[in-house]
Design a protein around this nucleic acid. Structure first.
Lengths: 330, 330
DNA sequence: TTGTACGCGTTATCAT
DNA sequence: ATGATAACGCGTACAA
């Protein structure tokens, strides 16, 4: 800036004024400064601005496993909601198992982000989040943390799983298997509970063997389906409720390998409504998780938080998407 | 830091020394300082560090359309290659059409990133990139820019498309249709050229009508397939080479809707080897783009650039993945 | 309207 | 080994 000021024959403060569009500046000098800025391709240093202003105009985003389409969609929502605005996102990658999440959050804080959007893994305690929330504006995605529930963007997995299972029952299915996520993960537990509850409420018996634990990856879906298939003689199930679409995809392939037709012999129901769910053969009936919308909502809310406006996160629509992977047995 | 210094009874410089692990500091005072740091949950301000040091320890990553699994994978590679290191990535989202890409790059530069990893869209000129490369260390993904080709991570799409088409021919296919990407996109053109060249080299005639232009999205694959199918009476093609897996997925569904079996009646060949390609029914034969590895490579190379080490980007393996979507007609 | 001077949080260069 | 002090690039209160 000194350089600019020198070349334009003004003081550094004037350059600053021009940069920030202050009204109190002579149009002539204004033009001169602009000209020099153009020539030197000058761009203000955001870090320095942050130093004096106390704000960095960045929002820290913690995300896990970009491999999962779900997180990618959330991220996309955050990204598009933020583009064009004054704040830019800075990402940090966590991980499910260890405290990589905490490390990543610390990284973000060291960078003095003005706010945080978190998709915390199981390793992050609720207390930690509540504590953190007192220090910095933050939004939690995918978990309802009591105490800061107004800053949480989440969906009621159990209720959705209940609806999905009920749907299968209404279609005439009486023996329904389930492929769960890793049960160390709250989402997996919730979805399983919804499944159990629906069975119970409709007077169907719960068969523990008919629940195969996976870990949300395609590979585990493959294994779980094989396990289930081996039990088919004892428990002739006609449908499988799978805890996410990724596993449903590999389950479907496993069935194909065994020459079992879907949905005629075995029906499949997924969870998430990932992009490819609608292109499966047959198109997969599933629960639509509004991943993109969750990202947008999180970003918009964090912006309101920053602007000290009141926030109000609406209940997210969890939609049952009926396609062609479930047979009507009635 | 002043606060820490005061409470620990030392000078602010000493606190700085402790923070940076300088050897010349009394163990006793060291401990005292550490203690206060713990209590106050103090975290150094990276921006301020960047100000004095001239380095921000961040790498700017420009990416487009997070919706595409390909970019998501690249990003994942970049992310994991960077975690644990001294540099963190900061993302900016570009777009294909307008100069959102340029805006995004400017954003990154304002933030004084130490280096850039770019996946530039068609709107970004080569000259611009060459110019940019003189100002800041950078790596370009997915394009070979003459002049800075050593800083480019890319694959030879045309050669891969040639191989794919040749593979179909070797399997006995004589009339092969093609669904291309949008031809304003270099990748789409390259893939199409590989297809044309393979046809020509094997003495097969090129039928312009048998090329349906899509835009890499699922929806366009649907449309393109319908277009092709309408031509089937005139040109009884037995295979379709599709320019990416996303369109291949919707092409496959379209075929399913028409009751056309794959690969018995029509064979399908994709491009990318996205995760779900192996879970399609039947599993899709495709060209594997090492997206994740490209991300890792880009990150590692940019780190070497930053460390002023010599760089050497190896030729990336483009692998033909043979699965079950192509019939052997011989 | 414009310029001077200070401060933001940190590192680095000096003395001490 | 340690403490002042300058400097990094910018915004701004204050004075002119």
């Amino acid at each position: 800036m000194h350089e600019i000021a020198r070349l334009a024959g003004v003081s550094q403060s004037t350059v600053s004024r021009v940069l920030n569009g202050k009204p109190t500046v002579d149009p002539e000098k204004q033009a001169a400064v602009m000209k020099v800025i153009e020539e030197l391709k000058f761009r203000p240093n955001v870090a320095a601005r942050g130093l004096v202003g106390g704000k960095t105009m960045t929002i820290g985003v913690l995300t896990r496993s970009l491999g999962s389409p779900f997180f990618a969609q959330v991220l996309r929502g955050v990204g598009t909601a933020l583009t064009g605005g004054d704040y830019s996102p800075i990402m940090a990658l966590g991980a499910d198992d260890d405290d990589a999440d905490i490390d990543a959050i610390n990284l973000l804080i060291e960078r003095r982000v003005d706010a945080l959007i978190l998709q915390p893994g199981p390793a992050v305690q609720n207390d930690y989040l509540i504590d953190l929330a007192t220090e910095i504006p933050l939004i939690v995605i995918g978990r309802c943390v009591t105490g800061i529930e107004k800053q949480c963007v989440y969906v009621r997995d159990a209720a959705a799983a209940y609806r999905a299972t009920t749907y299968l029952i209404e279609k005439g299915h009486r023996i329904i298997a389930h492929i769960s996520g890793m049960l160390s993960h709250p989402d997996a537990v919730e979805r399983q509970e919804g499944y159990f509850r629906a069975l119970r409420d409709h007077g169907l018996s719960i068969v523990p063997e008919l629940v195969a634990e996976g870990d949300f990856t395609e590979h585990s879906g493959f294994l779980a389906t094989e396990t289930l298939l081996a039990l088919r003689a004892r428990y002739p199930f006609t449908a499988i409720f799978v805890a996410n679409d990724q596993m449903a995809a590999s389950a479907r392939l496993t069935l194909y390998r065994h020459g079992i037709s879907v949905p005629e012999t075995i029906s499949l129901f997924g969870f998430d409504d990932q992009t490819n769910a609608q292109f499966m053969i047959p198109p997969l009936s599933t629960i639509r998780q509004p991943a993109y919308e969750m990202g947008v909502l999180a970003a918009q809310t964090v912006l309101r938080l920053l602007a000290r406006k009141p926030i109000q996160i609406p209940d997210l629509e969890l939609e049952l998407v009926e396609r062609e992977s479930v047979a009507d047995l009635r």
